Computed example of a mutant assay.
Amino acid sequence: MHQLTYGDIKAATDRITGRIRPVTLAPVDPGAIRTAHRDPLDDRPEEPCEVWLALEYMQHTGSFKARGAQNFIQAHRDAGTLPDTGVTIASGGNAGLACAWAAQQEGVTATVFLPTTAPAVKVAKLRGLGADVRLVGAEYAEALAACEDFAAATGALASHAYDHPLIAAGAGTLLQEIRAQVPGLDTVVVAVGGGGLFAGVATAAQHHGVRVVAVEPENCRALNAALEAGRPVDVPVDSIAADSLGARRTSAMALAAAQQDGVHSVLVPDFEIVRARQALWDHRRVAVEHGAAAALAALTAAPAHLPDRDLPPRPTEPSRGYRPGNGEKVAVVLCGANTDPGNLVQPAAG
């Protein structure tokens, strides 16, 4: 396993700066996020926490995945290892879109394998990005096997949705940009699926002494379960956010990042994810994926789900949310918005 380093993040930053959209940050209204109960012996003046939303859903192809895909393509271009047969990936989601986009930028072919059940709108979007779309099998595993066979037969460069150091390092550039805009950043809150975004962000965060809150749905807890077991393990996948956070197993790279100091594993129930997503629509007219809303749900979960922030749980007793401390500066990553907004509740006409 490649141990992701801060040097990998720096190299990715140098490669993709100017090729991706810098993240925009928007402050949350003062007082909108509750802070933790204060230590009675804390005599510092009381200050509200400061929370920013990192609007990464505004990235190319609608998610953070563009960063890793761009870093992957550029690194191989620079090394002279980008073959004429192009790149290939099995993914009907954000990773496939990002791979197709990054390949198009460099004028190489992306061959994307999807199950036959893939939504027609995603197939159309991939083809619009110039991808050669192959529909194989009824499940992702069959599409992945076909992708691997294709790479072996043609020499195409095989990419991965999350479990690759270049993909994770590209995602980690996001933390660099957030810190540049929020001096003194204390904490970054990020949703976790397979662990590519988390591994990159956590590696950069540890270098800078920034706390990371790793958020998963209660029933899609691949990273939390790996922390509990001490190794990556398969978990059931059953969440409204499973389309983007539904990895059955986290990467060893993500587990290694999660075992470092300053990482808090948090689980949130689906109804809190739905509530946070609706709140973003109600108050900001922002329509994000449920996976992106999961990060915000960690801060907005009802108090009944929250233990005291100053008593961090053991991995076997995960927190049901996170409350910032006195004056804490927090960034919440809204990582993607490739979603159907049709299930957001519209306000009544008045």
Rank of each mutant, 00 (worst) to 15 (best):
M1F: 13
V112M: 05
D270P: 05
G170A: 04
I89S: 06
K125P: 04
A297K: 00
A138D: 15
C49H: 00
V332L: 05
A98E: 07
A69S: 14
G336P: 04
P303R: 14
G93Q: 09
S265C: 15
G246M: 05
R314A: 13
R127L: 06
A151S: 14
C335N: 07
G107N: 15
D238P: 01
A276Y: 06
A131R: 04
V189E: 01
H305Q: 13
L185W: 07
P318C: 04
N71M: 03
A54H: 00
G31K: 15
D149F: 02
T81A: 13
G68I: 06
V274R: 08
V274G: 02
D340L: 09
A247R: 08
A171D: 13
W52V: 07
P324N: 12
N338E: 09
P22R: 12
F271V: 10
S319P: 01
M253C: 04
G200Q: 03
A146H: 11
V213M: 08
T61R: 08
H283I: 00
A156S: 15
V233H: 08
P269H: 10
Q105I: 00
T316W: 10
V286H: 02
F113I: 06
H2A: 07
A69T: 08
F150E: 11
L166R: 12
C335K: 02
A298Q: 03
D42Q: 14
D43W: 11
S319Q: 10
T85H: 05
E216D: 09
D14W: 02
A202N: 09
H76N: 14
L174V: 02
H164W: 04
G230D: 12
V237G: 09
I178C: 03
G230Y: 11
D43M: 14
I273L: 09
L53M: 14
A168K: 05
A258L: 09
V332Y: 02
Q176P: 00
V266C: 09
A293M: 06
A90M: 05
